[in-house]
Each structure stands twice: as C-alpha cells, then as structure tokens.
Design a protein around this nucleic acid. Structure first.
Length: 483
DNA sequence: TTTTGAGTTGTTCGA
DNA sequence: GTCGAACAACTCAAA
C-alpha cells in the first residue's frame, strides 16, 4: 500500500505560502487535508463572528484544494484524538501542519505528534503565520523582548522567508475514494445578513484586498489609518486571522512596492510596523501563560473592577450616549469589525471610564469580531488597559469627545453608525448633551428618548480612573502601607 | 556590573 | 492659539 500525506490545516486556510501544504504536495504520495473543529475543553472556541467567517472560508478553501487534487475533510472533536484517528483511517504515513503559538494549543500539537509517532506515522511541523517564529527573536542577552521598539528593530534586521508558491495540480495527487466533506455555504441565519454583505472571504479576496491597499491606500496610511470615516486601513485582519494570507506575503509585497515607489517608503514602513505588532503579540502569546486572562504585568492587583451589567450592556449595544463609542460598538455588531482607533476608544472607555475589567471587554470582542485571535485580541486589550507589555500608562485616558473632534472632525463616522443623531451639526455631533435645546429639537434629537444621555460623566470618571489605577486610592495595598 | 537613553496611538493646565 | 510640563516612576536593552 502506498503512503498518504495528511495536511492538518488550522489557521492557514490558503494554498500559497503554505509550508505544510507545499511540502506535502512536493512529495509523490497522495495528499488529503483535514480541518478539525476542536472541542477540547481547554481550548478557546471561535466566537460567533469568527465561526461564521470560518465556515465560509472553509467552503472557499475546499473548492481551491479540489482543483489541485486535494480533498478537504472537516471533522469535529478533540484534536488529540481526531487527528491520529483520521490519519490511521486514511492509512497516512505522514502528517504535516504549520505551527501555532498559543501555549495550550502547543500542548495539543505535542500530544498529537506523540500519538502519531506511537503509531509509526511521521509528524512534521512548519513555520506558522508570523514573520519570525517567537524563539528566533531574542535580545542580546538571549531573553524574549518585552518592549515593542526593540523587538521591531530585531525583526527588521532579519531576513523574512520568501513566500512559497501555491502547489500546482497534479495527476497522482488525489487519494482514490476520499471525497471532500460536503460544506454548505449557509447564509440563511438572520444575524449574518448584514455582515455577509460586507465581506469577501477566502484567499483570492485577501490577495485582492492587499493589492488594492498597496495600490490605492497605503500612500496615505500614516494619516488615513486614524480616520474611522475613511477607508484608510488594510482591513486584512480577518484574512490574517484565518491565514487566508500570510504575514510573509504581506511583508514581501509591501517591501517590493518600497523599491518601486521610494516616495511612499515611509508610509509602507508605518504599515509594516503594524504587521510587526502582530508578530509581537504572537511573541507575547508564546512566552506568557494565558494572556486572555492573566495580566502580563501585575500592576492592577489592587484594583477592584466594577461589576455593572447595565453599563456593560449599554456599551455592548452602542447605547452609552457617547457618540463615537456607540458608533464603534454598532459598527462591530453590524460588520464584525471595528476601526483600529475606535477600538482603542471603546476599550479605554470600558476599562477607564466605566472601570469594568478588561477581560469582560476582551470576551465581547472575542465573540463579535471576525478577526479576534489568540494573540492580538488579548494582547491589545492588555495594552489599552495598561497591564500589557509596553502598554499605555495608566493616565493615558482617551477623551472620546476630543478624539471624535480630532479624527472624525465632520462627524461622518458617527452619522453613519448612529443615524438618530445624524442631523446634529458638526459642532455638537460628538457631545449632544452639551448642545442647546433648540439645536437638539431642530435635529429631532430628544436626549433620554431618541438617544441616551451619557452613561457617565467623562471628567469625573476620568479622574476616578487616574486615582484608582495609580494606586493612590483608599482601597488595596497603598492604604495599609506603614510609614 | 553599571550606566544610560528610551519607551505606538493622550489630556490638561498654566504660561 | 501654542507650547512645555505634569501625570509616575520603572523597566528594558544595549553599551
């Protein structure tokens, strides 16, 4: 009996620059791919929005794989059991995959490797979707970096692997009698109707977006990326999340443009800095224990976060009465995505103005964002809260009115997502509670009826946060310190 | 070992 | 309107 190579796909739903798939297709054995919907208790399951994306991405991938003679099987269960069983059932002689960096997932992968080897099945892993794997980037002293800028310098000095080509179709690759799992592109659920219209999913769409971004958008990136009412960011995050495109492909495509158009080199460099941030968060994920629940720096141990379900629900629904916060939360709900600057604002508002635990916000984002992943969602929440590595200092508290006026000057973004106040003039669009009565009534706004009054007083809640987060308030360690 | 310069995205206040 | 300082020290990374 001939051997067969099984490719275990995870967050690498693409054909090009897929090291494991490339290796499998370079051999002479037939190739089959498997995606396992992992149900291990210890694993964090994809949130609702991400699960929706995943379903569509798998449909797209299955079709692409079929064209090169590879059947995609979709299984469900604990990977530690399902992968070895599937390999055995198919008579595989070898299983390959691309690495992931979350500590719990690495344990699963090690267990799978051991189980395969115990059955005399070869198991080989390849680099995951990062520019440089976490253990290859170290300080001069051999320790992991803890600040971003030094980490970024080290990554920029490295040679980033060139992307691999997609495997070509080949006659002998298909394994006989192994049909792909039928996948339904189900668009019937009501909640997905809007989000569905918003996205193109899959490898081809990711490549198309990258090209469009590099051709039309990146030149203005340093400024444009901060304006939520403008299409000024790459919007590649969900494609990266599922590996429909690789960080290496982005790196090399962007670097090539730098050579063609030196005038926009610094804009491209700014963008690549964000791609390095993504690597930095994976680096932190690898080196820290469970960053979704454990603060990387224990700076807030003395803080008692507020438990306030009413406030939390208002935040989740986009009914805080702070226009730019509400706009962001509604954009999130309707599209599964939120502009980067607004993410910082809504997160800062939850943690610092409402004094609600960052983990509560992280969970909401996890469930509603199409791009939430194990590294960047918790890493960025910890950054905003101030307990992450190289994080914002406790006194950096965004004022959503000033931020709105600065980055959504004419109020386009607020008007798009909070239509009930769209008729307010520019001057009041970010602070309707201060608008004169006649302005409100002629805009058809009745505070407390058609649009909420602010959930908290910005000035007072900001002062409270400074007090509490600086450790100078009356509860916790500082109060009991002897003189 | 010690020293030194630096550290993603802000706001407010007073001169 | 613009500018620098304060907000808090502390830790990191490299020399």
């Amino acid at each position: 009996m001939n051997g067969l190579t099984l490719v275990w796909l995870r967050n690498d739903l693409r054909l090009s620059d897929n090291p494991a798939l490339h290796s499998a297709c370079s051999g002479r054995d037939p190739v089959v791919a498997v995606y396992v919907i992992e149900t291990d208790r210890a694993q964090r399951h994809a949130g609702a929005a991400a699960a929706w994306w995943l379903g569509k991405s798998l449909c797209s991938l299955s079709e692409q794989l079929r064209r090169i003679g590879v059947s995609l099987l979709v299984e469900e269960g604990p990977a530690g059991r399902v992968v070895p069983e599937t390999a055995k059932r198919l008579g595989a002689s070898s299983v390959v995959w691309n690495r992931r960096y979350e500590p719990g997932q690495r344990e699963v992968d090690s267990a799978v490797k051991a189980a395969l080897k115990a059955r005399d099945i070869a198991a080989t892993s390849f680099p995951g979707n990062v520019l440089a794997e976490p253990w290859t980037v170290k300080t001069g002293g051999g320790t992991p970096f803890k600040v971003f800028s030094a980490f970024a310098r080290a990554v920029r000095e490295k040679e980033i692997d060139a992307p691999l080509p997609a495997p070509r179709a080949s006659k002998n690759r298909a394994a006989s009698n192994i049909e792909p799992t039928p996948l339904a592109d189900d668009t019937s659920a009501v909640w997905t109707q809007k989000i569905d219209a918003f996205w193109d999913i899959g490898e081809a769409a990711a490549r198309k977006r990258l090209t469009h971004f590099l051709d039309e958008i990146v030149a203005d990136y340093p400024k444009g990326r901060d304006i939520p009412g403008v299409d000024g960011t790459s919007m590649l995050s969900p494609h990266l999340r599922f590996g429909e495109i690789s960080a290496r492909q982005i790196w090399h495509a962007a670097t090539a443009i730098t050579h063609e158009k030196p005038a926009i080199a610094s804009a491209i460099d700014k963008f690549l800095g964000e791609i390095i941030w993504r690597d930095f968060n994976n680096h932190l994920l690898y080196h820290n224990e469970d960053i979704s629940t454990v603060p990387m720096r224990p700076v807030f141990d003395h803080v008692r976060w507020r438990k306030d379900d009413d406030a939390l629900h208002a935040w989740q629904r986009g009914e805080t009465g702070i226009p730019i916060v509400d706009a962001g939360m509604r954009q999130l709900w309707e599209t599964g995505w939120m502009h980067n600057r607004v993410r910082m604002l809504v997160a800062s508002f939850l943690v610092k103005n409402l004094m609600i635990d960052w983990r509560v916000g992280e969970e909401w984002f996890w469930d509603t964002l199409v791009d939430a992943d194990d590294a960047n969602n918790p890493g960025n929440w910890q950054w905003v809260a101030g307990c992450g590595m190289d994080a914002a200092p406790y006194f950096r508290i965004f004022n959503p009115v000033l931020q709105g006026q600065k980055f959504d000057t004419e109020g386009d973004y607020v008007r798009q997502w909070v239509p009930e106040i769209a008729a307010l003039p520019e001057r009041w669009i970010h602070r309707p509670w201060e608008a004169p009565r006649d302005v409100l009534s002629s805009a058809g706004v009745s505070l407390g009826k058609t649009y909420p009054r602010p959930l908290v007083d910005l000035k007072a809640s900001q002062a409270r946060a400074k007090e509490v987060l600086s450790g100078r308030d009356n509860h916790g360690v500082s109060a009991a310190r002897p003189s």
